[in-house]
């Protein structure tokens, strides 16, 4: 495919500045890492997503667990969470800009709004679907209160929680890119905007490749392993 692309480019099937050749993209890619501009961008983006995602994880787990265990909260706030989840999280950006100003917090806030509701909802449904038999067995063997939560409810809800974490990550990553494209001075999204402004198509493509690779790495390495480990242990079908 790459060869076809290169050949098509050489024989001039399209104007050269609109779509660069693979070798040009590769050159920009290497150069980007060499002059550290890509590395700085990656670090800036990763910092935001890691902070945002960790906050989402803690908040989502806490809220999901309380929704799942406390009927009152679920009835009042549960449907609100479901409703808010349908809102693409980038829509929070104007609000975030008003609240926090044009800075890191605003973008991290958008990342959090992307991930945290998915994690909350998945945790809640995982907790609510824990088979009552396991709860009885736990109670029978002396589990109650936080021990029950830690030793029975959370492990039993883990399959659902992992699905939510994975979905939350991909929402967070998308939100981050959307946020950085619009309002950021560093980061991968910003490098894309920069490429466009300089009419440097090979930079745009190179950054896109970096974004795809990071997304794939996290999905295939972190989450795939997490999920596989859990599925093997539980004896669930591998997907």
């Amino acid at each position: 495919m790459i060869v076809t692309w290169e050949v098509a480019h050489r024989i001039g099937l399209w104007p050269k500045f609109l779509f660069p050749s693979p070798s040009e993209v590769l050159y920009t890619l290497v150069n980007g890492f060499h002059d550290k501009s890509f590395i700085i961008g990656i670090i800036a983006s990763m910092r935001r997503i890691v902070i945002g995602y960790l906050i989402s994880l803690v908040a989502g787990l806490a809220l999901g667990l309380s929704f799942g265990r406390i009927k009152f909260l679920e009835e009042t706030l549960g449907s609100l969470a479901l409703g808010l989840q349908t809102l693409p999280s980038i829509c929070w950006l104007p609000l975030a800009l008003l609240w926090f100003g044009l800075n890191e917090s605003a973008i991290i806030f958008v990342v959090i709004m992307g991930a945290f509701l998915s994690i909350t909802i998945a945790t809640e449904s995982g907790v609510k679907n824990v088979p009552p038999l396991w709860l009885r067995a736990g109670r029978n063997m002396g589990a109650k209160g936080h021990r029950m939560l830690l030793e029975v409810i959370i492990p039993a809800a883990l399959p659902s929680i992992i699905v939510g974490m994975k979905q939350g990550w991909s929402f967070a990553w998308r939100s981050l890119m959307a946020g950085e494209l619009s309002y950021a001075s560093v980061g991968l999204g910003h490098l894309l905007t920069l490429g466009r402004e300089l009419n440097d198509m090979s930079q745009v493509l190179a950054v896109m490749i970096v974004i795809i690779i990071i997304g794939l790495l996290v999905d295939r390495i972190v989450f795939a392993n997490l999920e596989r480990g859990m599925r093997e242990r539980w004896g669930l079908e591998q997907v």
Binding site: M141, G142, W234
Partner: peptide, 26 residues
């Protein structure tokens, strides 16, 4: 202690960890 009709073993724990479960709580 009840041995439930559907056993209620915990699939997230190994065999020995299942057996240790009540002891850990204690």
């Amino acid at each position: 202690l009840v041995i439930f009709q559907d056993l209620a073993l915990f699939p997230w724990l190994t065999v020995s960890k299942n057996v240790e479960f009540g002891l850990r709580l204690a």
